[in-house]
Design a protein around this nucleic acid. Structure first.
Lengths: 187, 187
DNA sequence: CGGGAATAGTTGACACATCACCCACGTTCC
DNA sequence: GGAACGTGGGTGATGTGTCAACTATTCCCG
């Protein structure tokens, strides 16, 4: 409903040639980059990008344990995705589940020793890959531009009408969605 | 920076703070944007982003038919992905297969009337979405920057060593780029 | 206290991507 | 003609993401 503009759709706004070029370049780049990062991660280590993301969240907390829903929020994943993925990671010994004593519904995802060594092994290679594929190519100005462009679009996506569609497991405060600076970030 | 991985500090190039910020912003933006575009596409029409990509390639050719491998190359998809996806699209009536008379091995993917109306219905809304989520937010300079950054990275990914990993592992040259186990299982 | 409503998390069905392997056809060279 | 090899394309198993429906617990309010 909020997504459609039924009354304003008389003439289509096609992309301008320069926008077209930029958009196609972005789409292709993003697809290739994702594919390459995933492939490189599984070559360098025994985990996937998704595993890595989960493990980063776990190592970021003091207890190396985190509630499932908090995981979902910080990763912007659906709760069922978390549930499935954690089940698979548990089967491989990277994490384990523990019941939450203070809330009978909840459960924790806990880092195992095997999970810790997995991410410690994977992280340096991943950082090196990101350097090689991205930052070695860009000037400081371009890095800044990439950051601000990304933040603009991300903010657009996570506030206002757009956020309403995304928000299923979201906090009530829309401003809280973009925390300013975290601890040791991913990558 | 990342005091969690203490033993690797000598060989590892961690990201600088500015790079860190830009990278995190990019990763999150790109994830959200993909999700939103997909969701919006299926809200506005009966096809997915992947369907859309295939249909665009088909409508771009004069005959509205294209060989499977050419489709794979222009989309940068694996051939088996094309095969599976075309099978599903065929089941839904969006395309059909035809044998290639000049090469008994080959086959064409052909746009159907239903496929044509599907993309004609989907395209304007998609263009509008891209405007709304991206280009309405960016200055001309930012559009240009996005394009050139994307092209740089894309070029890096599709030339040299990187391309070798991407290009099927049936490349004849045994290289040292990929550490033994993960790379190109031959034999 | 009791009975909804909200919350935390799981499960199953399905769509999709990847991998390894397969088959059919074409080319080359003998 | 036919073996060897490359190429175009398909198939099935498996891992992954999404949606809808479900269970179990907690919260809220009379």
């Amino acid at each position: 409903m909020c997504q459609l503009f039924p009354y304003a759709e008389v003439v289509t706004r096609w992309l301008e040639p320069e926008q077209q070029r930029a958009w196609r370049a972005y789409v292709r780049m993003q697809g290739e980059l994702n594919a390459h990062l995933s492939r490189q991660m599984s070559v360098d280590s025994d985990i996937s990008m998704a595993d890595f993301a989960v493990l980063v969240q776990l190592t970021d907390t003091r207890d190396e344990r985190v509630r499932v829903l908090e995981l979902a929020r910080s990763l912007h994943w659906e709760k069922s995705r978390i549930s499935h993925h954690v089940a698979r990671m548990e089967k491989r010994g990277l994490v384990r589940r523990e019941n939450c004593s203070s809330d009978g519904r909840g459960s924790f995802v806990v880092l195992t020793d095997q999970g810790r060594s997995a991410i410690e092994e994977a992280a340096p290679a991943h950082a090196e890959t990101v350097h090689r594929l991205v930052f070695d190519l860009l000037t400081e100005a371009e890095v800044a531009a990439l950051g601000s462009i990304s933040e603009k679009i991300f903010t657009r996506l996570t506030t206002g009408e757009c956020a309403a569609v995304i928000a299923r497991c979201d906090a009530d405060d829309p401003m809280e969605v973009v925390p300013q600076e975290g601890g040791c970030p991913e990558a």
